[in-house]
Design a protein around this nucleic acid. Structure first.
Length: 265
DNA sequence: CTATTTGTTTATCC
DNA sequence: AGGATAAACAAATA
């Protein structure tokens, strides 16, 4: 599920409880999500603390707790952050649970491709976090930055290129398809084969889809409107909202990809 | 039973 | 060197 916009939404589920005291109820050290995590240290630091704020970058989330403790969460393929206000019962795939003022904050991930990490500093954001590259929706992601990114993956198939997190952080499978569909570029094209006009379109649609997805999905998990490819791409017999012709589906860049053959060149 | 999955890492081959 | 590809991870769902 979680790409850029979904990550913003999930982060806000927990982030809304900044300023409150968080008490650790459960941290499952057997969980694959805890690989690489110092579980004992995490239990100590997070036993009873205060959430001070949160940030997201691409598909990563960083929660800042008191005394320079930062919890990094990646949702993998099936992770969720939720708040349970009714009688909470420990779920089979709940790997991390806090109690906060009459409710429970839960990290749940059935497939366990997600990951937890603890970072400790003197209170500032970790250096590596501050050094992360601009995200497509940021003002700093201008045409110049885009051209640098495009240059670094000029030999790649565009679909695979858009999925590179070090270049386009947060773009996942459905967002990449949405961007290419709007830019009218077939997913199997090579980055270096794009014309100037196509590169411009790709830059524009990349930024537009990231910003709009965050606005629509990031706020309350609403579905984008029917005019997006989003709602049609997995449907059997789905048709292109632009041409009303059938959509195509195949593996491109190692991922299941959907596009509109009559619309994308 | 089979095949599928909105992510990432690693190995291997070219 | 850098890109393509497949496998692995693990569980739910159709």
């Amino acid at each position: 599920m979680p790409e850029l916009a979904e990550v913003v939404f999930h982060a806000s589920q927990w982030g809304g409880y900044a300023g409150k005291i968080w008490e650790l109820v459960r941290l499952n050290e057997k969980s694959r999500c805890c690989r690489g995590l110092d579980v004992e240290r995490s239990r100590t630091v997070l036993a009873k603390t205060r959430l001070e704020g949160h940030e997201t970058h691409g598909k990563r989330m960083l929660f800042r707790f008191s005394q320079g403790a930062f919890l990094e969460v990646h949702l993998g393929m099936t992770g969720r952050l939720t708040r349970d206000e009714s009688g909470y019962a420990l779920g089979k795939h709940d790997h991390l649970v806090f109690k906060v003022e009459g409710g429970f904050q839960v990290f749940c991930d059935p497939r366990m491709f997600g990951k937890l990490a603890l970072h400790e500093t003197d209170g500032d954001l970790p250096d590596w976090w501050r050094a992360l590259p601009p995200q497509p929706q940021d003002a700093a992601f201008d045409r110049e930055r885009f051209d640098v990114c495009a240059k670094r993956c000029e030999g790649s198939v565009v679909k695979a290129a858009l999925l590179k997190q070090e270049l386009f952080p947060g773009v996942g499978n459905w967002m990449a398809d949405e961007i290419l569909w709007r830019a009218r570029i077939r997913p199997e094209r090579r980055m270096r084969s794009l014309s100037e006009a196509e590169r411009s379109a790709l830059f524009t649609e990349l930024r537009w889809v990231c910003k709009e997805a965050i606005r629509i999905i990031g706020s309350d998990y609403s579905d984008p409107p029917e005019s997006w490819l989003f709602l049609h791409r997995w449907k059997d017999g789905g048709v292109c909202p632009k041409t009303s012709e059938p959509l195509a589906r195949d593996t491109v860049g190692g991922r299941t990809t959907c596009w509109s053959p009559q619309w994308q060149v």
